[in-house]
Design a protein around this nucleic acid. Structure first.
Lengths: 149, 149
DNA sequence: ACGTAGTAGTTGCAGACGCATCGATATAGA
DNA sequence: TCTATATCGATGCGTCTGCAACTACTACGT
């Protein structure tokens, strides 16, 4: 025991806090987005990531990174969203292995409809987390990390 | 747009950062724990939560909260670990609906064997995250939240 | 005592995930 | 040029998950 073990314990505690906060937010978002818009959190995340590229497209692998998903899961996720007409696959000419994905008008529309739900639930979840002593400091840190407007 | 929208955007950005960091750590832990000890992250989390109760037991619902899992997933998770002889179910007398779970000797042994892997990978993942500009501040905040020794 | 909620845990079911593998394309070296 | 290696995305397979429905039990109001 000593300084070395303290560091290990601090990391473990931090990770537990992070996981707990993530789980809380993720669960509530999952329920609300599913109920109100038929979207899962990863699906929303992908649509949101695409929209933030603003007119540009993303490759499957970038999408996988953005959503912290395996490439196989990404394939199927994109297929699901494509089947629903929310995005399109575009073969790219310069690298014929690559596949770009792009939001459709319907995709943008659904995303904009879901965003208020997302933002509201996120706010509620963070407020709820702030009431839990173990999570409160991390919530505060989350706000503080943003550039001061 | 204005102050109100800024708050929304700050929250969204914070959540994306949190999710990204969680995904990074979770993925690496998952791979290492599975490969070296045949444990998933939630399984490790449950064993760890039980051990930190130190001789005491936890009810299914507490376990579900600790692991951010649904009660059905918890049932099956406990069944898996019980089948492997890592913990035991104990019917409790005062509330006959309740079921306590308790680590077995084998469970404690596996947990102690897995802990070094867990701690090492966690340290590596955090170090890796620190190299990513978007994640670095949150990593720092994670350490700062701990009580100063 | 009794019926009504409310809570704890389990199970059927359908959906989503990761790993390993594979075909197709790109890149580098002899 | 031709082969070796690496990368990109898709697919088979087994596993895990949440929701909804169910049983068993407790607690409350009359």
């Amino acid at each position: 025991m000593g300084i070395r073990d303290d560091a290990v314990e601090i990391r473990a505690r931090g990770w537990r806090t992070l996981a707990a906060l993530h789980g809380l937010i993720d669960t509530e978002l999952e329920r609300s987005l599913a109920r109100e818009h038929g979207l899962s959190v990863v699906e929303f995340t992908v649509l949101d990531a695409l929209s933030r590229q603003d007119g540009w497209h993303m490759r499957m692998r970038q999408l996988a990174r953005a959503a912290a998903l395996s490439s196989s899961a990404t394939t199927r996720l994109v297929t699901r969203l494509e089947d629903r007409g929310l995005l399109t696959r575009i073969l790219c000419a310069d690298d014929r292995r690559g596949i770009y994905t792009e939001l459709t008008a319907a995709g943008e529309k659904l995303l904009e409809a879901a965003r208020p739900t997302h933002d509201r639930v996120l706010e509620e979840a963070l407020a709820e987390a702030r009431e839990i002593p173990e999570l409160a400091p991390l919530v505060t840190a989350l706000y503080a990390d943003a550039p001061v407007a």
